[in-house]
Design a protein around this nucleic acid. Structure first.
Length: 144
DNA sequence: CGCGGAATTT
DNA sequence: AAATTCCGCG
């Protein structure tokens, strides 16, 4: 498991792309969950259904994503292509009829008492818990 | 917009 | 493998 700068916790498999020696790059869906975990005021927010999210400001989101990846020419056209690649990977699907709305393929519900967490002596507030289907489990914590 | 093929990059 | 880039199609 790995805790990123946003205080979110990702399992190791989430950082898998180790093809570039040592450069575990953040994946798009990590980034989305990170922003979603931050709550309001963002370019993206949770939607009505479980796992559903709405991109409120597509170009702004693309800009942020581009900054994260060092791709200054990123735009929504390209970002959305990446999102569509997630369809076959069973990570996301489109909420048809709802503009800029996608949905994570979360399955069941959760393991609040995940072994080893929170680390001893660390105060933690669990603000969101998600379960990915990719295969496994993703726990999102907010540390304070 | 949203989709997915194809070539290319990281 | 996971995008990024480009693009024709409905």
């Amino acid at each position: 498991m790995k805790i990123n700068a946003a205080g979110l916790l990702f399992p190791d498999w989430a950082y898998k792309p180790a093809w570039s020696p040592g450069s575990r790059q953040v994946q798009l869906w990590h980034f989305l969950l990170e922003l979603l975990g931050r709550g309001e005021g963002s370019a993206i927010g949770w939607g009505g259904e479980w796992g559903e999210f709405v991109i409120r400001d597509p170009e702004r989101l693309a800009k942020l994503w581009g900054e994260r990846k060092g791709k200054p020419h990123m735009n929504y056209d390209k970002l959305s292509r990446a999102l569509r690649y997630y369809y076959n990977k069973r990570i996301l699907h489109k909420t048809k009829g709802k503009r800029f709305t996608y949905k994570f393929n979360f399955s069941k519900l959760i393991l609040v008492n995940y072994p080893g967490y929170p680390p001893p002596g660390l105060q933690v507030i669990i603000t969101s818990l998600q379960l990915m289907s990719k295969p496994p489990v993703l726990l999102l914590f907010h540390f304070i």
